[in-house]
Design a protein around this nucleic acid. Structure first.
Lengths: 237, 237
DNA sequence: ACATTGGGTCAACCCTGTTGACGTAAGGCG
DNA sequence: CGCCTTACGTCAACAGGGTTGACCCAATGT
């Protein structure tokens, strides 16, 4: 019974445990499940149990797991960008965009990890591109540069966010093992063959931390420097 | 029988079908399997079948699926970095590292999707970290900064490379559809609500190109600027 | 030549997503 | 009001996943 998922449903019939299913309720329950019990808690059976219905009832609302994940991703995008208005400071605005995207992904890592590399081409994405390129244009960049530089910026942000989300989407054991790896493995290395690692050994514990803000800062630093160079020589060869 | 995976094996016993198992052979077969039939084709049972052995024989070589994935990831790193020697120019060397990692991922796009954001804690990865941090130390950064900045650099490189690999791993139809979708969607937008996009419309065709070199250049630009600031004021407050 | 034991094999367990059949109750309609 | 259709919740079952413990053969050191 794969396929036809109707747009509007007329016959609303309570489950054995008394609740009324709906697309929204399922998506919300799925997000809650992930938030409470970790990303690995999202399975059709567990979702059914959390909803108080037979797991296969979900197939009346979504074609399959993938369809459900896309529905979840759609909501994440909307939530992340909701209420954002770019300010006068284009660097600060780009930074806030970056942090919002990252926060949206991290709020729901597993869904983000699954949907990150897809092109949504929906309204929220289009508006984000409009906003970002607009900011670079006000910074003084030529249209061609604004487009190219925005692409480099947003690709970095999205890639980083997706990577972080993917890491958070790992099963807890693997996640913690990766975390510990920097402490354990990298601590006792032969100083002769690994001089640089030995020199920075006290700092290696921090390698498990996120590099997202640092990377965004570096990128914005380079963009600001290029913008300053522009205003100094408005029409360069 | 989870656990003890010996470093060197002495008793090499052929499988029922006559082949001799080895860690390398398993990793290579896994890479071939993923390359031919996609990441979802990698399962213990299928890998056993491809190797001509009982699936559970793999547990003599790897603690579990995760361990195998890490071995694959490290193999990709090793292949990419094979023969690399850092030169005198630390910026150029970091750029070559970035391009090598990217090339390695693109060589195995589908495997890269699995392995990209893991800490392999194996030899090839450790050597790469040693090399990268060493380059930043020769650039004049303090140990703490070198570690943090390298993390930001390599995370950006790995994230970008993973994103590109994921895109290349898509079926051709879907890839080209995404490619076209960008042009199509952004073609006829209302100039009033999307002024910036309208201003850069001729440049939007290039949005489908890779932003990898651009992003790496921006990052290295920021790093070089910080290094210059260091040498100007060797001991800043 | 023999004891040791590494490691290939097998059967079994519990988890997944997904499907087709079944029946019940909800809602339209006379 | 009551019938008839059918939406949809339920159930059983299947195929495939990772992982484990027991088994036992043969390769190796002595």
């Amino acid at each position: 019974m794969s396929t036809r998922v109707p747009q509007e449903r007329r016959r609303r019939r309570p489950t054995r445990s008394g609740i009324l299913l709906s697309e929204d309720l399922i998506v919300e329950t799925a997000l809650r499940l992930i938030g409470e019990h970790g990303p690995e808690a999202l399975s059709v059976r567990r979702l059914g149990a959390a909803l108080g219905c037979d797991p296969t009832a979900l197939y009346r609302y979504f074609h399959g797991t993938d369809d459900l994940v896309l529905a979840i991703a759609d909501r994440i995008i909307g939530d992340a960008m909701a209420g954002f208005v770019p300010g006068d400071d284009w660097v600060a605005s780009l930074r806030e965009m970056a942090l919002r995207v990252r926060a949206g992904y991290l709020a729901h890592p597993r869904a983000a990890a699954l949907a990150a590399h897809r092109v949504t081409r929906r309204r929220n994405e289009i508006r984000a591109v409009e906003t970002g390129i607009g900011l670079l244009l006000t910074a003084g960049f030529e249209p061609a540069d604004a487009a190219r530089l925005y692409l480099a910026f947003i690709d970095t942000v999205l890639s980083h966010a997706a990577t972080e989300a993917a890491f958070h989407a790992l099963p807890r054991q693997q996640r913690e093992a990766d975390h510990r790896a920097w402490r354990d493995v990298y601590q006792d290395l032969d100083p002769a063959t690994y001089p640089a690692l030995t020199a920075v050994r006290p700092e290696l514990a921090g390698m498990a931390d996120s590099s997202f803000p640092q990377a965004v800062d570096l990128l914005l630093e380079a963009l600001a420097a290029r913008a300053r160079a522009l205003t100094r020589r408005p029409t360069a060869p």
